[in-house]
Design a binder for these strands. Structure first.
Length: 258
DNA sequence: ACGAGAACCTGTTTGC
DNA sequence: TGCAAACAGGTTCTCG
């Protein structure tokens, strides 16, 4: 497969969460995509122009790929259409418009305000019990809210924050600082939590991978969206409850998560 | 300085 | 049935 070039970029609505940069379409047209990468929940496309296209799907965004010739009348929430030299059109659809697109000049991607504040990637060795304990030392917010803070760990979202806490048997309502000693050293809970985050994300990636036999692991989640249902931990008689923390739904088992 | 809550949007589900 | 409130997997701003 050859690297594809942007033949034409049609912006049907030039503001998602933030306004698009000036000359967005013109800066893309004629350039090829040299590399695709990811940082936290941001998608990064390195272009032959040297610019980096930074994108985020927000809550409801998605890309769909269709043959260019079959692109008909755009749907209501189709905001951007990338017509590629491959003959495909990549359509960005986003009902809630919490998505995000920006174009940053060469060498400035890491300094982008959205990216520069991010903590370590959860599956990297930089994300470990020592780091987490230091990051949460003295923080009075809840453990759950802290896990959603992208400066602490980048790319963990609401579902897997709840899931990881269940695996680690830690209550989402604990003080974040409780996983560290006063000097910022990790307690055992910090190691369990780091391990649980890595585990839950690794499993989720495996499950999502195409062409594997892992696709139909029944049951989906351990706690997320299971209010009122039995805890899945073996031997635990608990019932999953839902609580709002920092404006988001948290699901946990009050019996086995301490 | 920190943490909680609101705000940004639209669509769907839930409750009276 | 109908309408309003609550809720949705994210991020960022404001306010106390």
């Amino acid at each position: 497969m050859r690297r594809a070039r942007f033949d034409e970029v049609i912006v049907r609505r030039a503001n998602l969460r933030t306004p698009f940069p000036p000359q967005f379409s013109a800066r893309l047209a004629g350039h090829t995509v040299n590399a695709v990468s990811r940082r936290a929940k941001y998608l990064l496309l390195e272009l032959s122009s040297g610019d980096t296209l930074v994108m985020h799907l927000g809550m409801s965004g998605d890309f769909r790929i269709e043959p260019a010739e079959s692109v008909g009348e755009p749907g209501k929430h189709d905001h951007v259409i990338f017509r590629m030299s491959s003959g495909k059109a990549v359509v960005f659809n986003d009902v809630r418009r919490f998505g995000f697109m920006d174009l940053v000049p060469p060498g400035e991607a890491e300094r982008h305000p959205a990216l520069s504040v991010l903590g370590p990637e959860p599956l990297s060795t930089d994300f470990n019990a020592e780091f987490l304990a230091r990051a949460l030392k003295g923080r009075k917010t809840s453990l759950k809210a802290a896990l959603l803070d992208q400066r602490v760990v980048a790319g963990l979202g609401n579902i897997y924050a709840s899931e990881a806490l269940h695996i680690a048997r830690l209550s989402p309502r604990r003080r974040a600082s409780s996983i560290a000693t006063a000097s910022g050293a990790p307690r055992e809970a910090a190691r369990h939590l780091v391990d649980a985050i890595k585990q839950v994300l690794t499993e989720a990636i495996e499950r999502a991978a195409p062409n594997t036999a892992n696709n139909y692991r029944g049951g989906r989640f351990r706690v997320y969206d299971r209010e009122g249902e039995r805890c899945r931990r073996r031997g635990c008689p608990g019932v999953i409850v839902r609580k709002t923390q920092a404006g988001r739904s948290t699901f946990y088992c009050p019996v086995c998560q301490k």
